[in-house]
Design a protein around this nucleic acid. Structure first.
Lengths: 140, 140
DNA sequence: CTTGTTGCAAACTTTTTGCATACAC
DNA sequence: GTGTATGCAAAAAGTTTGCAACAAG
């Protein structure tokens, strides 16, 4: 797990640092997290790590393909690990609950857009907004 | 056109102001625009209008259902008029081109999410990221 | 040692807020 | 007139950058 990180880093001439391990672990643990939340989680381990390091590290991790981000709210972007299986997100605009869904569900749409629009979907980045049943039933 | 605005505003106890007319017109003219771009367009008409008015007005217009926003970039949200037919967006992560697509194309996915996840998609807010053919062919 | 990485502080961008004034109704 | 809407200026939120000190390889 940390070996994959080390390998991918070296491959690009980057170095393995404690900060980078901490950030990756935080993202994996949190599931879906904003840079702010990642910072908080990292701080639980080591309070010396700086915000700018979080941003720089998330950028590197994304470049290495270990992490992805999507815009699940009107505020900060949300990062998630890619070591789990790929997935996309349903976001309830009322209660802000996030559900992860298997890419297979969008496959037909992806195929159609590929054929008709000649456009290749980036499923990992996909965020679908709407309203979940809980919120539809009880008002809001 | 401006009558619809006036009517909807009054319906909610809001007032019709030149600023609100200008902002709505700007969004309609621009097609897809960030608050910043809306401000610029409005300023072309009347340079006295303030940024905060743009934000407050976009919020009101969205509440009235005259305007919608989606996150088409990593930066500011993009607003578009709803007086046109509803649509969703394909965004190329390489060249940032935006293509509007008919909601009918996502209908099967919407149906499936409704059935399996009991989730009602907000198609107007949907932004699908990926790569367009132009960018796939010529590198990038 | 060499060069990438970090912490810090400051700048920047985007959005929000408080308040006095102005204006729609 | 009454109360909403606006402009202004300042604050908040999120992100980026320059630079000296530090540390991985």
């Amino acid at each position: 797990m940390s070996e994959e990180l080390a390998a991918k880093l070296r491959e690009q001439g980057y170095r393995l640092t404690p900060q980078r391990q901490l950030v990756l672990r935080a993202v994996e643990k949190l599931g879906h997290a904003t840079p702010d939340e990642v910072l908080a989680e990292v701080h639980a381990q080591s309070s010396a790590v700086n915000v700018s390091t979080i941003y720089r590290t998330l950028e590197v991790l994304e470049e290495l393909g270990l992490v992805r981000h999507a815009h699940l709210s009107d505020r900060a972007p949300t990062y998630h690990s890619v070591t789990d299986h790929e997935h996309f997100h349903l976001v309830c605009r009322n209660c802000h609950k996030v559900v992860s869904v298997d890419p297979e569900v969008v496959a037909p749409l992806a195929d159609r857009l590929m054929r008709e629009q000649r456009f290749v979907i980036d499923v990992g980045h996909l965020a679908v907004f709407g309203r979940c049943t809980d919120c539809d039933e009880h008002g809001g």
